[in-house]
Design a protein around this nucleic acid. Structure first.
Length: 465
RNA sequence: GGAGAGGUGGCGGAGCGGUUGAACGCGCCAGUCUCGAAAACUGGUAUGGCCUCCGGGUCAUCGAGGGUUCGAAUCCCUCCCUCUCCGCCA
């Protein structure tokens, strides 16, 4: 959520930001509604103040007369009744007025709220303008000795690569057919060494964050209330991407939603709290199952493990003091963790600066990490894919957008409450990461060589197959 | 799932229709005392919105929302949550 005060001060900044993100939200309309709302509130508060004053002044008198009225008869009764009517006249009128204001305020509340939640966080000034992911800008590349994505796979490895789907099939690592039988399209079953590798990678990534980088390990709910989804900025915009558990239809008061990322639980954890400054920065990591409907992605990445409804992800989240420089430093640091890990896993990757059109509502900056996937991309003359980059990580800088929505604050050195800044980044998402993993580390004989760091997590297994 | 109890400030805990944003205690902060500390004493100690001639003013908030009333922490309704006992169960 954006800061309404900042919006009033500088609407042009937000209009420019919304445009750059390709949002058509009507900011002028929100300003109008907000102005009307404040005018009504001021007028209503004046009425309330008077009502309060009158009530304190004459309330007890009124109470006394009402008490006497019960016993009174004849002339005295008539006198009391008229006195009471006189005393009640003004407050009654005020009450009606206040009620009328209430109705007016309530009438424009839904539209006001919807607009406020829909206004995107303006991108940082140095984020390149662009319409879609096609306009993202490559920042850097890394590849291990012995494999350069710029050179065709066969040329440097001496054999034609299999796609991950083919490898999975020949090594019996995943059962798509039975997955679909049980749970529909985009479902799968990891089995045997497929499951072992999946677990090994998650466990390695989790230990890397908690043991080497000191992040606090967490396990958080993956089925949450709507406020969590709104607070973290996924709703209302991404409502159709989340699985909806309609508990209300079974008599419960509230519906629940399956989270698409551990970020929801890690950020929602401190919602509505005022954290002590000494607790910052907060660094959390979780491994959680993620659920995504992938609505609107029909026909995209249908084969294999790239785009699935359910996966597991190690996620990192940082909450720190509201400071621009620190914010950027953490962003680099969190991306650095991922780079270190991918280098140890010997997976070629590149960093992509996402353009404004690819940021989504909540981010002010986002850098994606893409791994090289030989079995992806356009087909070559031999009818085989020529390889392409595939997104495996996404590092977001959110400034105070999320903490404001979550009402998560800290107290600064002047004892004032401030919304801290938050970031999140994937550490490792599997099974998607298995795609580059299997394809890059495949050997000519069809086996998969397991990178050193993962072996302890697989009973010292050196290769699959 | 059944039966019961209850949700008040950082915590404990009063209040149960009329200056109650809320007694009292603890905690915390500042001051006095002290070489310093402890103790004691004194004072202070919620969050948010809006308005502001920047002195302040004002409204809201006692789990959440709605209602009754001139007036609600107090009465009514709905929901959420916690606890105890029983049942079921990974």
């Amino acid at each position: 959520m954006i800061d309404l005060k900042k919006l009033r001060d500088d609407p042009a900044r937000f209009e420019k930001g919304a445009k750059a993100k390709g949002s058509s939200v009507d900011i002028q309309r929100l300003l109008e509604l907000d102005e009307a709302r404040r005018k009504l509130t001021v007028a209503q508060e004046a009425c309330r103040a008077e009502q309060k004053r009158i009530s304190k002044e004459m309330g007890p008198e009124l109470g006394k007369r009402k008490g006497m009225l019960k016993k009174a008869e004849g002339e005295e009764k008539a006198r009391l009744e008229s006195e009471i009517a006189e005393l009640e006249a003004r407050p009654s009128a005020l009450k009606a007025e206040i009620h009328a204001f209430d109705e007016q305020i309530a009438a424009n509340e839904p539209e006001w709220r919807d607009l406020l939640l829909a206004i995107p966080q303006p991108p940082a000034d140095d984020v390149p303008i662009g319409a879609s992911s096609d306009d993202n800008v490559e920042l850097s590349q890394w590849h291990p000795d012995g494999f350069d994505p710029a050179i065709p796979f066969a040329e440097q490895r001496g054999f034609a690569p299999k796609t991950h789907v083919e490898l999975i099939d020949s090594l019996d690592l995943v059962d798509f057919e039975r997955g679909v039988k049980m749970a529909g399209s985009r479902s799968y079953v990891l089995k045997g060494d497929g499951m072992r590798l999946h677990q090994a990678m998650l466990r390695y990534a989790f230990d890397f964050m908690t043991q080497e980088n000191g992040f606090t390990p967490m396990n958080v709910p993956v089925i949450v209330r709507e406020e969590c989804m709104v607070g973290t900025g996924f709703f209302p915009g991404g409502r159709d991407q989340a699985y909806h558990v309609e508990e209300s239809r079974r008599g419960a008061g509230q519906d629940l939603f399956l989270t698409g990322t551990g970020e929801v639980g890690l950020m929602g954890y401190h919602a509505d709290e005022i954290i002590d400054r000494s607790e910052l920065p907060i660094t959390y990591t979780t491994v959680s199952t993620c659920f995504r409907r992938e609505a609107g992605a029909a026909g995209k990445d249908t084969a294999g493990l790239y785009r699935v409804h359910q996966f597991d992800k190690v996620e990192q989240v940082v909450i720190h003091e509201a400071d621009e420089e620190e914010h950027r430093a953490w962003h680099r640091k969190m991306i650095g963790y991922v780079e270190t890990m991918l280098q140890r896993l010997e997976l070629p990757y590149r960093l992509l600066q996402c353009c404004t059109g690819d940021l989504g509502t909540k981010n002010e900056d986002m850098i994606d990490v893409e791994c090289w996937i030989p079995g992806r991309g356009k087909d070559g003359p031999d009818g085989r894919p020529t390889g392409d980059w595939g997104e495996t990580h996404s590092a977001s800088r959110l400034s105070d957008f999320q903490t404001r929505r979550l009402n998560l604050r800290y107290r600064d050195e002047n004892k004032r409450t401030v919304f801290p800044y938050a970031l999140n980044n994937t550490v490792l998402a599997s099974p998607r990461i298995l795609i580059p993993m299997l394809e890059i580390h495949q050997q000519e004989d069809g086996t998969i060589l397991i990178p050193e760091p993962l072996r302890p997590y697989m009973g010292d297994l050196e290769r699959i197959g």
